[in-house]
Design a protein around this nucleic acid. Structure first.
Lengths: 124, 124
DNA sequence: CTCCTAGTACGACTTGAATCGTACTACGGG
DNA sequence: CCCGTAGTACGATTCAAGTCGTACTAGGAG
C-alpha cells in the first residue's frame, strides 16, 4: 500500500504527520565546506536560503513562494544545486515540492554560516 | 625619488617600516559575500587561506611558502582571485610578493567566517 | 655584467555553470 | 475524462573558471 500523501500545500514539518520521504540528499556528515560555499556564491541562491531562513516559519514552501522571475527550468537547476550541496531538503507534496532549510545540519557542521547569510543584502 | 623597498623576505607587518603599498584590492566595505564564497569554493584556495590563518604568525609569506605543487602560472591565478575577493593583501617586497590574510577586514564584515575555514579539512 | 630566481602575461584548451525554450509528466479539481 | 498546474527532462548556447606551457620581467648575488 503506497504512502498516503498529505494534501496540505503549506504543512508545517514540525507536526510530523505521514510525511513523504525527502528527495536524495547528502547526509549531515557528508556536507563539504567548498560545496556549500559554491552553492552560496550565487545571488539567486543566496536569496532563496536567506528567505527560507528569515521567513519560512518552519513551513515547507514551494518554488513559487520565493517570487523569483525566472523560467521554471532555471529554478529547477538552482534548487537542485542547493539540495545537492545539502542546504535544503525537498519533499514531494502531491504536485508541489516543499522546500525547507536544513538549519540544524548546517548549524552543526558550519556554525555561524547562516548568520552570514541572514545579514546579506543583494548588490545594488 | 622612488620608495626604498625593504630587503627582508619575511618581514613582520606589525613592525610597519617603510612598507610598499599593497597591490590594488577592494576596500573593506566593498567586500561581497557572494564573491568571498566563490573564492572559498576551491580547495586550493581554502588551503591557502587556512594556512595563512593558522600558521602565518602575522608575517607576510611568498607563494612558495604554501607548498603547493602546481605550475607558477596557476598559483598566480589563484592568489589573484583571493586578492580580488578581498581575502588577502599582497605587497611587493623586492622580488618576492608577500601574502597576508586580511583578518580584521574579513572578521568585521563576515564574523565567524574564518572560524569555518579554520575547522576545514581537505577531502580524502 | 651576468646569472638566478620569484613571479607575471598571454594564450590555448577543457570543463562546468548559468540560462532558457520546448516538450513532457503527474496530481487533483470539476 | 479532461484540463490546469507545478515542476522535471533534455538539449543548445553562452560564458567564466581552472589548468598549464612558454615567454618574459625585474631584483639581488656574485
Amino acid at each position: 500500500m503506497p504512502t498516503k500523501t498529505p494534501t496540505a500545500e503549506f504543512r508545517s514539518f514540525t507536526e510530523t504527520p505521514d510525511l513523504p520521504e525527502p528527495l536524495p540528499e547528502p547526509a549531515r556528515d557528508e556536507l563539504r565546506l567548498e560545496t556549500v560555499m559554491a552553492a552560496l556564491s550565487d545571488p539567486l541562491r543566496l536569496h532563496v536560503v536567506r528567505k527560507l531562513l528569515l521567513e519560512a516559519e518552519r513551513i515547507d514552501h514551494p518554488c513559487g513562494w520565493f517570487g523569483i522571475d525566472r523560467p521554471k527550468s532555471s529554478l529547477t537547476h538552482h534548487f537542485r544545486t542547493l539540495r545537492d550541496a545539502g542546504l535544503i531538503r525537498q519533499r514531494q507534496f502531491g504536485l508541489t515540492r516543499g522546500n525547507q532549510l536544513r538549519v540544524d545540519d548546517i548549524e552543526a557542521r558550519f556554525p555561524g554560516l547562516l548568520a552570514l547569510v541572514a545579514q546579506w543584502k543583494p548588490a545594488p
